[in-house]
Amino acid sequence: MRKSILIFACMLVFMGCSENPGPAACGVENPIENLPWLKNAVQEAQSWEFSEYSYLIQASYQGNTVFYFGSCCPFCNWAVIIRDCQGNQIENVDLGQLKDQQTIWKPKNSVCENI
C-alpha cells in the first residue's frame, strides 16, 4: 500500500511539472524576442548615448501587461512612456497603479542598481 501511495505521489509531481509554464506576457514566452516592436525598441535602446542608464520594465496596469523604459541617469531628463502589448502608447497612466513591476532588460554595461 505504501508503495502505491509513493508511486501515485511521484506521478502527481511529475505530471504537474512542465518545461513550458505558459506565456510570460502578451501571449508569448519571451516578450523581448517575440514582440517585434519591443525587440526593436530594446535594440534602439542599446545604441542610446547613455544606454548604461536605461532599463526596461514589464508591469501590470488595470489587468493588462505594459512596458516602459526607465532611467537611473542622474543628469538626464526623461519621460515615462507606457506601452501595451501591441506597442501602443497608453495615455494618462497613474504610475501608482502599476503592479508586479519587474526589470526584464538592462544593458550589459548597466550602472543602475536596485532595479
Rank of each mutant, 00 (worst) to 15 (best):
E19T: 12
P31M: 10
R83K: 13
A25E: 06
S4D: 13
F8K: 03
E91G: 01
A41K: 14
N77D: 14
V13H: 05
F8H: 04
N20R: 09
E52W: 02
M1G: 12
V28A: 02
T65C: 07
Q97K: 14
I104Y: 05
S110R: 00
Q97R: 14
S47W: 03
C10H: 02
N88P: 02
G63M: 03
E52K: 13
I82G: 03
G63Y: 02
T65E: 15
N109H: 09
L95G: 13
A25M: 08
V28K: 01
Q86N: 15
V66N: 05
I81S: 08
L12G: 10
M1F: 12
I104M: 05
V66L: 05
G22Y: 00
P21M: 08
Q58I: 04
T65K: 09
W105Y: 01
G22D: 03
C76H: 07
W78I: 01
D100K: 07
P36V: 02
Y61I: 10
F67P: 11
V111G: 02
P36K: 04
Q89F: 10
L6S: 04
Q86E: 15
N92P: 01
V80D: 10
V111T: 10
A45S: 11
D94W: 09
Q86H: 12
N88K: 15
S110A: 04
E33I: 00
Q86C: 05
W48P: 00
F14V: 09
K3E: 11
D94E: 15
W37S: 07
D94L: 12
E113D: 04
C17I: 09
Q101G: 06
L98F: 05
I115P: 00
G96M: 03
P23Y: 09
I57M: 13
I90K: 04
N77G: 09
S110W: 02
K3G: 10
K106H: 15
I7F: 10
L95A: 11
V111W: 01
G70Q: 05
Y55K: 01
C17T: 07
G27P: 06
A9S: 13
G63N: 06
A45R: 03
F75E: 12
A24M: 11
N77F: 07
P36R: 02
P36A: 05
K106S: 12
P31V: 12
W78R: 00
N20C: 09
A79E: 15
W78H: 11
W37M: 05
S71W: 00
S51D: 11
P36W: 07
N92M: 09
F67A: 12
I57S: 03
W48N: 12
I57H: 05
I82P: 02
I7R: 05
D84N: 15
S51K: 09
R83S: 13
A45C: 10
C26M: 06
L6Q: 07
I81K: 04
V28T: 04
G87V: 02
A41P: 09
C26K: 03
N40D: 15
A79C: 06
P107L: 00
S54M: 13
G87C: 04
E113N: 02
E49L: 14
Q101N: 08
